[in-house]
């Protein structure tokens, strides 16, 4: 033995068994495919839920900040009534979604609202997207509120209407300010999809768990799953920091 100390018996035994463990959990019966297929589903659900979340989030953030900013000055009338109604709907959405656990929302979506649907992937996308949208809305709203009022006035004084000012001037700056918070939200979302197993969707976590149930060996499949999540999150964080640096060009 080249080592300078005696290896404890349990460790050498464990090391000797590691190859067998690996073959049992991943190679035999092509069990690695549970994780590969699960990873595909996890990424698919996360990707589309992120898109849905951003869309919902931007709409809700605009409704909320518009209401806060201009409803006081608006003349009573149809426009103001519509805005007040939209604001009330948005507030209800934010309160309910942020006040209940995502697992419960997912199960309600699958077993109650879309009980007739067999498409688990679509239901998961909708549930996670709607959930994420509520958090994204508050993140983007804080971004909009952080932009100086003068930017708004400059846009309006050029002749842009409220929505154009938002789109061309406010949102791009707000987005840049909240990018770190948004990235964090998407990391959370990626990991939250690991509860998809509750509706029987075989995402990566469920895949690892299925292997565990077949082999009665928890260590390898679960650590493999954890490692893959970790790598994805690290890769994503790196991409975001590159994007942040690019967007910061204008500040130099």
């Amino acid at each position: 033995m080249i080592c300078c100390f005696d290896m404890p018996a349990w460790l050498s035994e464990w090391l000797a068994g590691i190859g067998d463990e690996f073959i049992l959990n991943f190679v035999k019966d092509d069990r690695y495919m549970y994780i590969v297929k699960g990873l595909g589903l996890t990424l698919e659900v996360t990707f589309f839920a992120v898109l849905l979340g951003i869309a919902l989030g931007i709409i809700c953030a605009i409704v909320r900040s518009t209401y806060d900013k201009i409803s006081v000055e608006m003349r009573p009338g149809f426009g103001k009534a519509v805005l007040s109604f939209l604001n009330a709907v948005t507030n209800l959405y934010l309160t309910v979604i942020r006040g209940t656990p995502v697992v419960v929302q997912l199960m309600i979506a699958y077993f109650v609202i879309f009980a007739s649907s067999k498409n688990k992937v679509l239901v998961a996308i909708l549930a996670f997207g709607i959930n994420s949208g509520a958090y994204v809305a508050e993140i983007i709203r804080s971004g909009i509120m952080s932009i100086d009022q003068g930017q708004f006035e400059a846009g309006r004084s050029l002749g842009f209407n409220y929505v154009q000012t938002m789109i061309y001037i406010i949102i791009p700056q707000a987005f840049k300010n909240v990018l770190p918070a948004l990235a964090n939200e998407f990391i959370v979302l990626l990991k939250e999809t690991s509860v998809s197993g509750y509706i029987g969707l075989e995402d990566m976590t469920k895949g690892g768990d299925i292997i565990r149930s077949r082999t009665y060996s928890a260590f390898m499949p679960l650590l493999a799953v954890a490692a893959i999540y970790l790598v994805i999150v690290m890769f994503f964080s790196k991409m975001v920091s590159l994007l942040e640096r690019r967007l910061r060009n204008s500040e130099r």
Binding site: G150, Q151, E153, A154, G159, F160, N161, Q173, K176, S250
Partner: peptide
């Protein structure tokens, strides 16, 4: 008013240039 504001330029104390452009 948006149409009319196009014909009324405004210059502010704090410039209010768009920093992202």
């Amino acid at each position: 008013i948006n149409k009319l504001r196009q014909k009324m330029g405004m210059v502010f104390q704090h410039f209010n240039l768009f920093p992202h452009m």
